[in-house]
Nucleic acid binder design. Structure first.
Lengths: 350, 350
DNA sequence: TTGAAAGCGATACCAC
DNA sequence: GTGGTATCGCTTTCAA
């Protein structure tokens, strides 16, 4: 038990080590270690004395020492797109889910921004700061994939690159989700259905989920024998106006894959004299908690951010537990449509 | 250079250590260390050989070993309120700012949820996982304050508890901000001004900024010789309706300290036949990037989340740098009103 | 300007 | 069921 020079100022508190605990409990260092890890049987009596000593001294094992000795840091890296982007609530829900799930496995979470790119991954992995990595906002041809493959630590992607290269992936099945949206509208009699997509930039950087959604949408609409109308949409008021103009007036069903555009969209529809759902039906793709408080309760296709985040952690834990290489796995969660009040059969216009 | 048993499966990659680098460069271990840290002069020649060896071997110092030997982890804890709360964009902006600023100082960020409470702080601090802590969403009588005071690591609060107990604090000056909002409306001739506050729960848990804002609002309205009308507001449509009803129809100026309520609020005002700003002027308290895309460009009081987050990191770094105890500091950033289109002189009603 | 070596605090192997 | 101790990879003092 010594006093470290740190920022403790005057009331310099002692640093309690495992040896202090051992001494106080009258046992050896290794016994304390094993009592803590449970990796070998300890008699109830000594277990108790150790516990008492730990409590009395206020002992906390030194994470760095532990990481050095055991080659495990009990930290997960989470790479999140932290720009002031559009889908903030979704990101936040992923992050919350990952941190919460990680804590349940006694893991902490180191937060990295996507901006750091490949270098950030190599830094935290190379330095053995983390035992595994969870990477959000994966692009179709994501430059980070080859880097992740080379790391000593396993990783889980939230998203689905075109070439997963043996990495584990979790995501909503956006292709099936798009189909489900179209089919939901079709089942109410709609045939002229358009997609209000994410902002143009999202497509430009090849974001995986946007492309998969578009693929599913195109397929479903084509299967219906209808024309494919799909437009990216800047979520500003002007952007939405523009998008609606490009889509044209004859459409009766709208699939909105752009949470931020919802408020201006519904506002502009109202101004145009289009009622929802009487004149235009709307299905929004959106996490349950992030449905904006609009006059119409929106029918949505859920983005199960919480489930995906939790599942990503579960997969990471499985990879860490398994002593040998596990075959890579891709889990795409099935779509869930929550019918509310924004979809109804189309009124036949002249 | 050995091979560790980790999760590397078959293509087990070597772990490069500082000794490997030293050997490759033909120098001693300590020289490599000093070349890396710059804590003692190194001749250009050896510096170069070391750099070359590092590059060639792909050496990354082991974070745990470094933390153990130096008693510094180069990690900051950030405690964020990660519930699916209301002010998601603001939180996100804080987090982004903190992570970005931390990286500029070569620090990483460990993300904790507020839910973990005092125990979480003690865990990461006691285990020396972090060198300093930044704590968001501080309450007036925050139970974490006494815990933070006892830690060996310095901390910075984002927010202002009633009793800072010697801790460093950063925040927007919410009291002055409320005054500025009222005075802005008053300078346009408004005398009947009401506050649409945060959700009731925010007040109930004694959130610092909400109370300070209310204090400033009350003071400013009283100074104006007017009645104080201030209502908490659940950001659902029904909640906003209710809030407006409680406030009553005679008010001409609204200060909205509730970002999520803005969309339903403006919608309901429109339905009530109240035009903005002709019939009702509105000042919203809101970060610049989170102004919702409404038909009226809102006049806002900015929440400088980015500045506050950056400043928190700067303060933490100063605390870490300074060899002796630094006197605690509280920095409240001055308000900034951004005039846009939602404030105009009141039309005199009969 | 450089090297040698003593820790840092825990883990886990080997012995009993 | 318990104890001794080498080891993890790096920093930093001391000595040259």
């Amino acid at each position: 038990m010594r006093c470290q020079g740190g920022g403790c100022g005057l009331q310099c508190v002692a640093v309690v080590t495992i040896d202090d605990v051992a001494r106080a409990a009258g046992v050896s260092t290794s016994t304390v270690s094993y009592a803590l890890s449970g990796r070998r049987p300890i008699s109830p009596a000594t277990r108790e004395r150790v516990a008492a000593a730990i409590a009395e001294l206020g002992y906390h094992p030194h994470a760095g020492a532990r990481a050095l000795a055991s080659s495990r840091s009990s930290v997960l890296a989470l790479v999140a797109p932290l720009r002031a982007d559009i889908n903030v609530p979704v990101i936040m829900e992923f992050v919350t889910a990952v941190v919460t799930a990680a804590r349940e496995h006694n893991y902490d979470v180191l937060l990295l921004t996507k901006d750091e790119g490949t270098a950030g991954l190599q830094r935290v992995a190379g330095g053995a700061m983390v035992d595994a990595l969870i990477v959000m906002d994966v692009e179709s041809a994501d430059a980070r994939v080859p880097a992740l493959v080379k790391l000593r630590q396993p990783s889980v992607l939230i998203g689905l690159p075109t070439e997963p290269a043996g990495l584990n992936c979790v995501d909503l099945d956006f292709e099936a989700t798009a189909r489900a949206c179209v089919e939901h509208l079709a089942s109410h009699g709609h045939r002229r259905i358009a997609l209000v997509g994410p902002a143009p930039g999202v497509y430009q950087r090849g974001t995986s989920y946007a492309n998969r959604f578009l693929t599913g949408f195109t397929g479903a609409v084509t299967a219906l024998g209808a024309d494919v109308v799909a437009e990216p949409c800047d979520p500003s008021r002007a952007g939405v106006r523009d998008c609606l103009d490009r889509i044209g007036p004859s459409v009766t069903g709208l699939v909105v894959h752009n949470e931020a555009a919802l408020v201006p969209l519904l506002d502009l529809l109202r101004i145009d004299g289009k009622r929802v759902p009487e004149d235009v039906s709307v299905v929004a793709v959106c996490p349950r908690d992030a449905v904006p408080p609009l006059p119409v309760r929106l029918t949505t296709a859920e983005i199960p951010a919480h489930e995906v985040g939790t599942l990503a952690v579960t997969m990471a834990m499985r990879l860490l537990d398994s002593p040998v290489a596990t075959p890579p796995e891709t889990r795409l969660l099935p779509p869930v449509i929550v019918p509310r009040d924004s979809v109804a059969p189309p009124v036949d216009l002249p």
